[in-house]
Design a protein around this nucleic acid. Structure first.
Lengths: 275, 275
DNA sequence: CGACTTCTTGAATGGACTCAACGGTGGTGG
DNA sequence: CCACCACCGTTGAGTCCATTCAAGAAGTCG
């Protein structure tokens, strides 16, 4: 490996930082990761990075900007599944499926890296720890979607809205995109409605209620949260599902504690059974 | 590896079959997989295999029976995130998180295998193809949750219900648990309501409408779908999201086509950029 | 056979939706 | 430079889908 590459590897990218919260990356892993982000593309707002039904495209890594992952019904009704923030992967596994079951559209100008899906095999074979960390972060994403499902299924409009605002505040503050309880939400009320399963009109009224009760302030796309505590309480927000706690580093342990498996199957443990 | 183990490996388990649809398993991989399912436990209905908030437990593999994955709000409202069927993993990544953000409860008597989370490291390091296939099947699960999110956000009660019935019919027929358009749904209307984000009363009325229009028949837990086509049309069901098509075997290709990556980062491709 | 859970149906309520209209803002071009 | 248009946000009024409340029927289990 050349010096030039090695020095380039030292710039930590959002993905780099995200995976670091799961395990301590070796220099080699950092190098490989930065190589995956070698090919960088900029896209304007309202660009489809991935389109529902589309056959194939490179895997993308969001480096800067916002996007939404969304699904549409044939008749046009639409649901925003999640917000894509820096460090998130786009179509990691979709490229291996026959075709994409969702779209990803930019909300702001973005900077994305991309690599061909063939490299996934390489990644899993040569960098198992990275592969595990990526799979893990995929599981974290699913947890977010599942929590949103709970919102749509069982929370009222007010609760849902409060919950989403607190979620975004927490997620953004990790990547230093929210300070002092305020952040930029580059989103129309229509998109908010599609994310929360509500009508535009009703989102508007719900935001007004939150504004009038003094919990939040809105000027343009800037949102200020005045009382996170109460907002979280309204939305019954429990940040457990975001899996932010990095303390145990269980993944790290799984790899270091593991007896290097060679060939057949010969681990420890006894054959217990329970009625 | 002993002969005894090798012979045991030859019984295909549901997980085995599921992963086979992504790639052709080698004998070694089959052997390892069957070793992961070595420790088998039986549990009665209404047992928690995993509990929201709980710190740690073994990874489970569902071998036989039904379970639900669900999340609850502090005030008791509940959302069923997904149905767990044979071949599905339980808590694969949760064991690596600090604590579980959802519960898994059996609906029927079940047979599950379990293995300690430390083996995940072993799996990723020694069986990259299996690891990729498992990550892939995790992505497929997320796709199902995302589709359910679309249901709760944008489909009416009737549409949602129709959609879920068709989904279960499709998923069950893959594992030979549905024949001739009928299957056993070991579920109360309360659970159905919690899965679809509706009240018990309304699910009852919705099922009645479907029954009265002749689309389905219900006797006890047995459900018969008389007109899949029309049911699918009501629910705007498009099976794309289930990712059942195994034809391309892209995963297989990603591994065989991949240039064995050795050390640093030196793949092909040019540094393009786009405005 | 009781006791419990589950299913079913009616009636009234309500949360969110649709329809509709108006105001603000920013971009475009005559 | 301002008229125009498109998009977005805001608000009112009426409607409807789904909920809650309530109570009885039908299973199910010890």
């Amino acid at each position: 490996m050349t010096r030039a590459l090695a020095s380039r590897a030292l710039e930590p990218t959002p993905l780099w930082l995200k995976l670091s919260s799961y395990l301590v990356l070796s220099d080699e892993e950092k190098l490989y990761l930065s190589d995956l982000e070698r090919t960088i593309v900029r896209e304007p707002p309202r660009t489809d990075l991935l389109q529902q039904g589309e056959r194939y495209r490179d895997v993308r890594i969001m480096r800067d900007g916002w996007a939404i992952r969304h699904k549409a019904l044939p008749d046009g009704r639409r649901q925003v599944v999640n917000f894509v923030l820096p460090g998130d992967l786009i179509g990691m596994y979709c490229t291996l499926f026959e075709s994409a079951d969702h779209s990803v559209t930019t909300l702001t100008a973005v900077e994305v890296a991309s690599f061909p899906p063939e490299r996934i095999g390489e990644l899993f074979r040569s960098f198992p720890r990275l592969a595990a960390a990526l799979a893990w972060s995929g599981a974290r994403e699913e947890a977010i979607v599942a929590e949103r499902l709970l919102s749509l299924g069982r929370r009222t409009a007010l609760e849902r809205t409060a919950h989403l605002i607190v979620e975004l505040l927490r997620r953004l503050s990790i990547v230093n995109m929210a300070t002092d309880g305020h952040f930029v939400l580059p989103v129309t009320q229509e998109i908010l409605a599609d994310a929360l399963g509500l009508s535009i009109v009703h989102i508007n009224r719900t935001l007004r209620r939150l504004r009038e009760s003094g919990l939040i302030e809105l000027n343009g796309q800037r949102i200020t949260v005045n009382d996170v505590r109460q907002l979280a309480s309204i939305g019954q927000f429990d940040e457990l599902y975001l899996h932010l706690i990095r303390a145990p580093r269980r993944l790290e342990r799984a790899f270091s504690a593991a007896h290097h498996h060679q060939n057949g199957a010969r681990p420890d443990g006894d054959e217990r059974a329970k009625a």
